[in-house]
Amino acid sequence: MSEDTRPLTETVYYVLLSLVEQRHGYGIMQYVREMTEGRVVLGAGTLYGALSTLQEKGWIQPLVGDAGERKKEYQVTAKGRSVLALEVGRLERLIRDGNAVLEGGAS
């Protein structure tokens, strides 16, 4: 089976990044907003949809919470982590290509 190396959406990318450590929904929104200095502000509807999709794909999983803790927390799975690593590699390649052309004067 070949690895899926298609680009991730910005929403998925930042949700996965935020879930390298366990977080609940609101925590994800805050973390992403702070990390991107307000550039990426996840809408609650968008985030909720992304969390469902990522769970279906097995890239993240809900954590079994303590009794009385209503807020569901999530974390990336091993699969999710490897998808993230592949994406970071792909983005590095994009930067390298971009810099090679813009700074190296390639023609």
């Binding site: 929403t11 809408g43 968008t46």
Partner: peptide, 10 residues
Amino acid sequence: PFDLFSDRDS
């Protein structure tokens, strides 16, 4: 900003 949807797909 308070929007329920923050990307195109949603």
